[in-house]
Amino acid sequence: MIPILRQIFRTGIVSEPLPPADEALRAATQRLSAAITEHLGRALVIRHVDAGSCNACELEIHALGNPYYNIEAAGIKFAASPRHADMLLVTGPVAKNMEVALKRAYDAMPEPKLVVAAGDCGCTGGIFGESYACCGRVANVLPVDVSIPGCPPTPLQLIEGILAAISPGTTLSTSRSIDRSTMSAPGSNG
């Protein structure tokens, strides 16, 4: 126990201040009401879904939790269930094989909900594009509020985008139509 405490003491607090929101990353014109953002700003819960990335974006999302960025100190945490989430953070182009699962995760989230597409692939389809196996950018499958470019986006860029989605004055439309035709039969692949 003593070596652990000594290590903690020696390391000290290395957390750095978070960057401000980057409004330029906002993809949708809808804005959340001030009341909601004030609430979310204190405790935002994110469900991340990798819809087909190369896994570099995941490494940077992991980095958000390290002591330098310490994103939990800002009241932002990642949830295991989409039912507990305010924001869906999607990485990768949407692989055809992940389309149904991604839509189900979105559908399971309570309203109001935000979608952030992270990484060049999520923003544009990136180098993988659209094909028999790939739906391309996230916006081709779900309504996207904020797009964060980068290959992969750095932790700071991710934070700027996440904060942009919940920055004051934003409102969110709740009536968005997505194709639910493939979302009916539950349970085939768990």
Binding site: D50, G52, S53, G92, P93, A95, K96, N97, M98, A101, I127, F128, G129, S131, Y132, A133, C134, N189
Partner: peptide, 13 residues
């Protein structure tokens, strides 16, 4: 295991 979810057609690309 059932994998292949991330298949995005890289070889054809």
């Amino acid at each position: 295991e059932r994998l292949g979810w991330k298949h995005k057609g890289i070889e054809r690309r």
